[in-house]
Simulated scan of single mutants.
Amino acid sequence: MIQLENICKQYTNHNHTIHAVDNVSFSVAPNERVGIAGGSGSGKSTLLRLIAMLEKPTSGTLRLFGEEIHSIQNHTEIYRSMQMMFQNPLAV
């Protein structure tokens, strides 16, 4: 259902590169539940934003329901199959 292979997300700010997500790989099978935990600034929200296709990875492969996100034409079907609740919904 969800497969991440060597996913990286970097941001550049004033010639300084921030590695928000660095070389993350894991998969989540149908009906499997997973928790993501870590300290403040560890990349949890960025990782979830990548999975929800709100951000694009800098490198690596992300597959949702067997399709690479780059090749998904109809995002509506994917969005109907997943949900994301922000900790503070007014701070999206």
Rank of each mutant, 00 (worst) to 15 (best):
Q3L: 11
L4Y: 00
L4F: 01
N6E: 10
I7V: 13
C8A: 07
C8M: 05
C8I: 10
C8H: 12
K9Y: 10
K9E: 08
Q10A: 08
Q10P: 10
T12H: 06
T12I: 06
T12A: 03
N13Y: 07
N13A: 05
H14V: 05
H14K: 15
N15E: 04
N15V: 01
H16T: 12
H16M: 05
T17I: 15
T17D: 13
I18V: 09
I18M: 01
I18P: 00
H19N: 11
H19K: 11
A20V: 10
V21R: 05
N23T: 09
S25Y: 08
F26W: 09
F26I: 05
S27Y: 04
S27R: 04
V28Q: 11
A29R: 14
N31H: 15
E32R: 10
R33W: 09
R33T: 15
R33H: 13
V34C: 10
V34P: 15
G35M: 05
I36S: 03
G39C: 09
G39K: 08
G39V: 07
S40I: 11
S40Y: 09
G41A: 05
G41H: 05
G41R: 06
K44S: 06
K44D: 06
K44T: 08
S45A: 10
T46G: 09
T46P: 12
T46R: 11
T46V: 13
T46E: 10
L47D: 03
L47W: 01
L47T: 05
R49E: 12
R49N: 14
R49P: 02
L50V: 03
L50P: 00
L50N: 04
L50A: 04
I51Y: 01
M53D: 00
L54G: 14
E55A: 06
E55D: 14
P57F: 00
T58E: 05
S59D: 14
S59M: 14
G60C: 12
T61K: 15
T61D: 15
L62P: 00
R63S: 14
R63V: 10
R63A: 12
L64N: 03
L64F: 07
L64E: 05
F65Q: 03
F65I: 04
G66E: 08
G66M: 07
G66S: 06
E67T: 07
E67F: 08
E68H: 13
E68M: 07
E68N: 14
E68V: 07
I69T: 04
H70Y: 00
S71R: 01
S71D: 06
I72R: 00
N74D: 04
H75R: 12
H75C: 04
E77S: 04
E77H: 05
E77K: 10
I78V: 10
S81L: 12
M82I: 10
M82D: 06
Q83M: 13
Q83G: 15
Q83A: 15
M85P: 11
M85V: 15
M85I: 15
F86A: 14
F86E: 12
Q87K: 07
Q87I: 08
Q87Y: 07
N88I: 09
N88G: 11
P89M: 11
P89D: 10
P89R: 11
L90G: 15
L90M: 14
A91C: 11
